[in-house]
Structures are given as C-alpha cells and as structure tokens.
C-alpha cells in the first residue's frame, strides 16, 4: 500500500500531465464529432459577449465597406424589380419553369414560403481544417439546427449548434462539410467538399462525366438535402479534371461569397424540411 502511495507521489507530475492531456484530447474528439459540451463552445455566454462586443467595434470600423455591399445588393434588387416590371408577361412562364430571375434561380413561390432570419457573423474562421462561424441569433430568435446559412451572394454553411442567443454553423470551409449541388443548366448533381487548402477553392466530386460541365458554369444547390432550397447560388467552375474513379470528374469551384469577409447573412429554413425528414425516416425504418 505504501509503495502504491509512494509511486503516486513520485510520479505526480507525470500522472497529472497524463490526466489533463487525455482530458484535452477527449474534448477535442467531442468537438469533432459534434457532441459539444456547451461550456467549451463559443456559444458560451462569456465568449459570446466578448465576441459581440468586439464585432460591434469592428463593424463600426467597417461601416463603409458594409454600406458599399448593401448598396450593391440594393442595386441588384432594383434591377430585379425593373426586370419584373418591364417583363411581367414573360415572368409567369419564367417563374413556373424555375429559371433565373435576377440573382437567384430559386423558384419565387418557394422564396415566399421560406423562413428567413437576418443575422450577423460575429466570429469567422477560415484558416483551420474544421472551420465554424458564430452567429448572433439563437433559439429565442427561432434558429434551429440544420438551418442553412447564406450570404447575399451564395451559401455559406449549415447551423449545427444553438444556444439561447447564439448559434454555431459549420462553414463550407470545413473538411466535414458535404453539400449536394448541381449545375445550373442540367440536373446532374455532385457533392461539394473542401480540401482544407484555400478559402476560395472548393471541390465538386462524384459528378458524372456526362454532366458536360464547362469552365465558368454556375453551380446551384440541388434541393435534395432539405436544408437549402433548390437553385440557391453556390459558385462558379474554375477547373475540370478527370477523377481517379472512372466516369467521374473532379471540379474546382470558386464560391461566390468571399468567405474571409462575412458579416450580413440569412438563415434559411424550408418549412417542409421536417415533414420530408420524418417521412424519409419512417420509410427507412419500415424497409
């Protein structure tokens, strides 16, 4: 017994190191698998407040740039309005076929049904492998996990964790991010991933060769995932290579959104998402 106690006293430094080191590793593993302890995420009260304070200061200093972005968005909306007014006749058929009107090619009746919350990014990482965004709206504002996050230009991420006043989203710059997208001109779809290298470079995989993509094509969301509506803008094709697997392509994509400068975002929820998910789950259970 005495020997055991002596062993502990002699090795107390190493044992303490081992205990705290494994605690650190297990916290990291939890963070990766998404089982956050709420205290160690930036949805936490203290860190949330500190970040809000700092981002208020930053947004004040960046008002000029924000203004310019809003003016650009306004101009785009005005153009869209003009198109609608001058082109009412052609509009009907366009909406029905779900083609492009102004910025987004989303079916406009679907836009009306979407639940959209305006929010701000208060912490944005884009240099790590598993990047996340902290957003200043939480359950009290109606935010729920699996809502889509989009900037005025295109998709940005998916909400994963929510607290009362804040939420955390998995950025599209996260090596675990998988988003189904398709070419704007055809219905061939693939999975959009990030290879962890550059914030302006995404990779579209699992897209068949017959999709006949060409450089400069626009990519939009597919709508199969129930998170983003069909036709939300994603990015443009910058390079196309044959993939290792035969009959597939590896496509480089530049996102429309500058991921290193994010402030105004929209949180999007499809009203029918829960119904679709429940139905699909039920059918899986029964099969």
């Amino acid at each position: 017994m005495q020997q055991i106690i002596e062993f502990f006293i002699r090795n107390k430094n190493f044992l303490l190191f081992l205990a705290l080191f494994s605690l650190g590793i297990s916290l990291t593993q939890n963070a990766h698998s998404g089982l956050y302890t709420r205290n160690i995420a930036s949805t936490n009260k203290i860190t949330g407040r500190v970040f809000t304070w700092f981002s208020d200061l930053q947004s004040y200093l960046a008002l000029r740039q924000q203004n310019e972005e809003l003016i650009a968005e306004n101009a785009q909306l005005l153009k869209r309005l003009n198109n609608i007014q001058s082109d009412t006749l052609a509009l009907d058929s366009l909406v029905k076929t779900g083609f492009k009107i102004g910025m987004a090619s989303v079916d406009s009746s679907e836009i009306d049904r979407l639940k959209i919350i305006q929010a701000h990014v208060i912490n944005n990482a884009y240099h790590r492998q598993k990047n996340t965004l902290t957003i200043d709206k939480g359950t009290l504002d109606g935010v729920a996990p699996d809502m889509g996050v989009a900037s005025p230009m295109g998709i940005v991420g998916i909400i994963t964790h929510v607290s009362e006043h804040f939420s955390v989203a998995q950025s599209i710059l996260n090596t675990s991010s998988r988003i189904v997208v398709k070419s704007k001109n055809s219905d061939h779809f693939g999975t959009l991933i990030w290879d962890g290298e550059k914030p302006d470079h995404l990779v579209l995989t699992e897209i068949p060769k017959i999709a006949s993509l060409s450089i400069g094509d626009s990519l939009v969301t597919d709508g199969k995932s129930t998170i983003f509506p069909r036709g939300w803008p994603v990015g443009t094709v910058t390079d196309i290579n044959p993939a290792k697997a035969q009959d597939y392509l590896d496509v480089s994509v530049r996102p429309h959104t500058d991921m290193s400068s994010l402030y105004h975002v929209y949180l999007i929820q499809r009203p029918e998402a829960t119904e679709i998910r429940q139905l699909e789950k039920r059918s899986q259970n029964e099969l």
């Binding site: 705290l20 605690l23 990291t28 593993q29 990482a125």
Partner: peptide, 11 residues
C-alpha cells in the same frame, strides 16, 4: 473556448 477547438490548445 474562443476558437471552438474543443481541447486541442489545452492538450
């Protein structure tokens, strides 16, 4: 806590 990295910095 400020980086959302779980316990990587701690370890």
């Amino acid at each position: 806590m400020f980086n959302d990295t779980g316990g990587a910095h701690a370890a």
